[in-house]
Every structure is written in C-alpha cells, then in structure tokens.
Amino acid sequence: MNGLGNVFNLLAYAAAAVFILGFLYKVIVYFKTPSPLNIPTTPGPKTSGGVVMRLIPEILFFRSLLKGGAAEKILWFGGWVFHVCFLLIVLRHLRYFTYPVPGFVMSFQQIGIWAGLIFPLALLILIVRRFTNDRLATISLFADYFVLLLIIGIGLTGILLKYFMRTSLVEVKAFILGLVTFSPAPMPDSTMFTIHFLLVLVLLVYFPFSKLMHAWGVLVAPTRAQADNPREVRHMTPWA
C-alpha cells in the first residue's frame, strides 16, 4: 500500500498548497484593491474600534440575517448550527494532527461528536430550503448544491467511519502525522476513509476559488469594515 500511500500523500500536499496559496492570494488581492470612497452602510460606527464591535456579532451570530423575516430565521438556524458544528468538528479533528494532543483539543472531543451528528441535519435544512422556496430555487446554481453535497458527503462518510465501518485510528493518526511532519506514512487500508479524505481534499482545493471565500470577505467588505468617519478623516483614493 505504500505506493498508493504516496499518491495520497502527494495529493494531500498539492491540495494543501492550493488551499493555502489560493487563500493567501485572494487575501492579498482583496487587501490591494482600493476602496476609493467611504461607503459604510449607515448607521455605522465612527471608529475602527467600533468597526470591530460591528463585525464581531456579524461573525459570531450572523446578526444581519436576524433582521430578516421567516425565511431568514430558518436560514439563520440552519446556517448557524452548520457553521458552529463545522468549527467544532475541525477542532475535534486536530487530535489527528497533534502529538501529544493538547488539552483544549481533548476538551472538544465529546461535543465534537455531537456536532458531527447534528451537522448533516443542518445541511439538510440548507439544501431543502434551496428547492422548496421559489426565490431560492431561482437564484441557486449548481455550485451551491455542489458545496452542500460535498460537505454532506464529508459528514456522512465521517459518521460511517465512526459508527459502521471503523478503521484503525492508529493508522489514521500515523498517516496524518506523517503528512504533517513530512515523513510520509502509508494510507490506512479503508475505502471509506479514502473517500472521506478525498472529499476533504476536494473541499480544500475548491475553497479559494469559490463563494467559500466569504469566510474572509465578511471581514473586508467595505460596507461593514469601514468606519463612518468622513467628517474626521479624509478618505484618500490611491488612483484618482
């Protein structure tokens, strides 16, 4: 299996590189593209401290979605639960990447398992929403279903791995640690794990080229990230 293991190692490195470089590239492009005018959506904070206070509830609680009606409440629920679960699951997975496993990662184990079970349900809400509402059905693209299905796929194969088609965790950990420490180890002998792992790689590669960049965009969108201070500060335009 060593040969195949090497292919997966290579794929993993390639995917990680695409993700990291692609993400950084987007971050740099966003940073470098100027905002010629002061365009915060008002009422907005007048200082950069205020901007941070404006963004925190947007990031932690999707605050603006809460301003909407019934459809947005459903979206808020599905979307928020999904994101929190996603985060918990990522944290839980850190135990495969570390040795010894730090205490905080251990403390996420139990809740991470719950998150793993709830997460496909939240995604189900998000996907059903898309074809049951005429407005959403109109705007939804193949790409929107694609990411949702991809992540559902990751979640379900994860659940299968945990409860039905268990694989050797020792091998998994050895494989992942091998990747992280650049000393490749063989791929665990499990079809289900192979699928789970490949789907994650697809997500990584897809991320920087897709709407998933909202994870960074939410921080830099000028309508929210600018302070409403044209009276105090002369906003300058580099190109004019």
């Binding site: 593209t33 709407k211 960049m213 939410v218 969108a221 000028p222």
Partner: peptide, 13 residues
C-alpha cells in the same frame, strides 16, 4: 473597487 471585487466573489446566494 474593492467593493465590486469582493462582492462578486463572496455572495453565497
């Protein structure tokens, strides 16, 4: 225009 660039990229529909 950062607004245009970022907005075109990040809308999740």
């Amino acid at each position: 225009y950062k607004s245009v660039k970022v907005f075109l990229d990040i809308c999740v529909r």
